[in-house]
Design a protein around this nucleic acid. Structure first.
Length: 414
DNA sequence: TCTGGGGTCCTAGGACCC
DNA sequence: TCTGGGGTCCTAGGACCC
């Protein structure tokens, strides 16, 4: 074989990040929560063994946590993002062909001569240089590499899947990458229950049932690559900032603060990536789980006459879009801002009705604001519309220090 | 009391055109 | 009265991923 695809996946990534700076957590049940301290999104093996499921709402597992003294952390994205970069940089030492697929996963192209010793070297190097344990699956396609990785996690951290059929026969079809709940139901109804069953279906049949997506999955299971490595991340097409509130929001004032805050964050992300937006959508929603209140959600979209990444222009548009959505008789649980039709900032057409001098002044203002706010999540300079106290902010009750990105939160060795 | 956030891709169907 | 065939573009919504 001339070429392999490896999937390198960090083990319980957020938990592992916490353990790097807090070795006492080793061997203990540990979980990391989603934003707003809502659900468990990362679990150590010890926590998994207790039966804590991925995405379990915290309030449903309170007893389990107390009973087994599970260590609980809020998400600390500054820390996880930084450690993720270190892992990815380490992987680039082994091949230039690295696709960063998510915060904790990367696909690597490796030569066909690659063997278990090489994988072990990669694994041990990442652990030594970053402190993060990874598992590596190797196969002929991305979809098979995913499955190999799945196997690796159950073994000693590496798996080479040369003859996949035996493994596919034992794997429920729902575990195949790209097969979600709906597809699982449909496939099972036709007697396809294992990955091997899926590998052997008729291509015309799967085309009718699942479209081109299904065909690709089946081909990949057969060892025929359909999903190329994306070495250069494609330009983003949209950008969304949304949050659940720490407590319900009822007043228009607070909702405006929140929407202005989310807009500022989204505008910053555009400037960071050198993009502008022509479309802005605001959405607000009540709690969809509330049994005694009907679920109300609504959204409004405004087009921007000139593509922009200016916080002030975008905030004006967002507040204007919010106005007709807001209803005084509702208790809101969540809001968000979505920016669409993104184009590179240097390709923006001149707007005949905007004075270029004013535009340049606005750009300079944003540069100053971004410099003042360079510390992650800092709010040294912001619009008045964002408010000061922000009582609706999400809960972050158990966040560990931002060891690697804040001088004042460096690890101290007594 | 308490249920995340941020994305992408694909398809079907409507409007419109020649 | 008859009422084709092929194409593009746009949008909404579904499905899925981590």
């Amino acid at each position: 074989m001339s070429r392999y695809i490896a999937l390198v996946d960090c083990d319980a990534f957020y938990v592992s990040c916490e353990r790097v700076f807090n070795p006492k957590l080793e061997g203990e049940p540990v979980i990391v929560l989603s934003n707003n301290d809502g659900c468990a999104v990362a679990r150590s093996n010890e926590a998994k063994a207790l039966g804590i499921k991925m995405g379990a709402p915290v309030f449903q597992i309170r007893e389990l946590i107390a009973q087994h003294q599970v260590q609980v952390f809020s998400s600390n994205y500054a820390l996880y993002g930084n450690l993720s970069n270190r892992v990815m940089q380490t992987l680039r030492n082994f091949t230039p062909e690295v696709e960063v697929y998510s915060i904790d996963e990367a696909f690597l192209a490796l030569p066909g001569t690659c063997d278990a010793t090489a994988l072990t070297t990669i694994r041990e190097t990442v652990k030594r240089w970053t402190g993060i344990p990874v598992s590596i699956g190797l196969a002929q396609t991305k979809t098979l590499a995913k499955i190999a990785n799945h196997q690796a996690k159950r073994q000693d951290g590496i798996c080479i899947l040369d003859q996949p059929e035996a493994v596919l026969a034992t794997l429920p079809v729902s575990e195949v990458w790209g097969i979600g709940r709906q597809s699982t139901k449909k496939l099972q109804a036709h007697g396809i229950t294992t990955a091997l069953d899926l590998q052997q279906v008729d291509l015309r049949w799967i085309r009718r049932q699942m479209g081109i997506v299904g065909v690709r999955i089946v081909q990949e299971l057969r060892g025929i690559p359909c999903l190329p490595l994306e070495l250069v991340p494609p330009l983003r097409k949209s950008c969304c900032v949304s949050r659940s509130f720490g407590r319900l929001v009822t007043t228009l004032d607070e909702m405006q603060e929140a929407v202005a805050t989310f807009t500022a964050r989204a505008a910053y992300k555009l400037r960071r990536d050198n993009l502008t937006a022509s479309l802005l959508t605001v959405f607000i929603a009540t709690n969809r789980f509330s049994p005694d209140q009907p679920y109300y959600r609504n959204s409004a979209t405004v087009g921007l006459s000139c593509p922009t990444n200016d916080t002030i222009a975008l905030t004006k548009a967002a507040l204007q879009a919010l106005e007709p959505l807001y209803r005084a008789d509702q208790q809101y649980q969540k809001a968000g801002v979505w920016l669409g039709e993104l184009t590179p900032a240097n390709q923006v057409q001149r707007d005949l009705f905007i004075n270029p001098h004013d535009q340049e002044k606005a750009r300079q203002l944003m540069r100053v604001v971004d410099t003042l706010n360079r510390q992650p999540l800092s709010r040294t300079a912001h619009c008045a519309a964002e408010g000061l106290r922000q009582p609706w902010q999400m809960r972050v009750q158990r966040r560990s220090p931002r060891y690697t990105t804040r001088w004042d939160e460096l690890l101290q060795v007594p």
